[in-house]
Amino acid sequence: MKYDIILAGVGGQGILSIAAAIGWAALDSKLFIKQSEVHGMSQRGGAVQSNLRISSEEIASDLISFGSADLILSVEPMESLRYLPFLSDKGWLVSNSKPFVNINNYPPLEDIYSEIKKIKNHILIDAEKTAKEIGNYRASNIVMLGAASPFIDITYASLEKGIKTIFARKGEEVVSLNLRALEAGRKFAEDTR
């Protein structure tokens, strides 16, 4: 088994927390992982991405090749399109529909949505709205992970364990919120796919 994920977003949106949850779950499932991340200048509100590779065999490259990502998971709609050359023909694009507008020339949202909808395997979800419904908009990144979870080759139970581990420090309330967020995201994806 080999599963390549590109996580996308804008610096400061916290895509690395999603990477950490998947990474933890992959290790728990005795899989190999390599996860390359962006530090430095682009963290200041620029486009950021992380390459996360999971495999049952040892992984050579830290970077994903063109046309081979199984999943693009983006917490921002325009950013979900930036890495399309990396997506495989059978890959899934899972994106938050809520834009992060910090540039003057941000394109019309309808144009972005229509490009996303051109990808047959896509999920477009308003993660912030879903997160608010289950208790707190801050859990929107984990809603996104939930929405991508049906397509990731890792058991749901392992993802839950990952979330419990990562948020344990922040107390029972935060853990339970994020577990609900995971579930809500997953349910949305399963209902709409």
């Binding site: 804008v10 610096g11 200048m41 682009s42 963290q43 200041r44 509100g45 620029g46 486009a47 063109f66 046309g67 325009m78 950013e79 399109l81 930036r82 890495y83 399309l84 050359p85 990396f86 997506l87 495989s88 023909d89 910090n102 540039i103 020339n105 941000y106 394109p107 144009d111 972005i112 490009e115 990808i119």
Partner: peptide, 15 residues
């Protein structure tokens, strides 16, 4: 590659 970056995507420099 199976997909191209759509023209609608613009640069997002750091700030």
């Amino acid at each position: 590659t199976f997909f191209e970056v759509p023209k609608v995507v613009v640069a997002r420099p750091p700030e």
